[in-house]
Computed example of a mutant assay.
Amino acid sequence: MTIDIRPDDLTSPEMAELIAVHAQTMLASSPPESCHFLPIDGLRQPSVSVWSMWEDGALIGCGALKELGNGGGEIKSMHTRAHLRGRGLGRLMLDHILSVAKARGYTDLWLETGSMDAFIPARRLYESYGFSYSGPFGEYAEDPNSVFMHLHF
């Protein structure tokens, strides 16, 4: 089986459905006022690059990178279909995003994720890549339901 990660223009019904599932998953785990996922229109901004992950013709995951300026980017919309978690697919997408960030000359990557137990696997993944916990960045504010992480290259 071959995993294919490719740029996505967010026009396919499959990708719209996956982004909707991502939103539902976030809203099921966090209070709405603490959910900072980008809806599909937010992902269609020129400052955001989106990739879809495919296996044998099936959409299995996605990830995005938002340009923050000043050599920085924000990881957004990392999602793997629930029944496929634990196979290292998130690691593959994160590897891809990191390689793109480095190729673009970024020196810093940031992310926001949840503080609840449902987000422990995500936080462990980012920790394993050297992300450290930080305070809010950009337009984020301190929130007990959010965790902010940073990686400097």
Rank of each mutant, 00 (worst) to 15 (best):
I3P: 12
P7S: 07
T11H: 15
T11N: 11
S12I: 07
P13F: 07
E14M: 15
A16E: 08
L18N: 00
A20D: 07
A23H: 13
L27G: 03
A28W: 01
F37W: 07
L38I: 03
P39W: 10
I40E: 07
G42A: 11
L43N: 11
S47K: 12
S52E: 09
D56R: 06
D56G: 02
A58K: 15
A58C: 04
L59E: 04
L59S: 15
I60K: 07
I60Y: 08
L65C: 07
E67S: 14
L68I: 00
G69D: 09
E74I: 11
I75Q: 15
S77Y: 05
M78T: 06
L84C: 03
G86C: 09
G86E: 02
R87V: 08
R91Y: 09
V100R: 13
V100W: 13
A101M: 06
G105T: 10
T107M: 06
D108I: 07
A118R: 13
R124C: 11
S128H: 04
S128R: 09
Y129E: 08
Y129T: 05
G130C: 03
S132P: 11
S132Q: 10
S134I: 08
S134Q: 15
G135F: 03
P136T: 03
P136H: 05
P136F: 09
F137C: 07
E139A: 03
N145I: 00
N145R: 12
V147R: 11
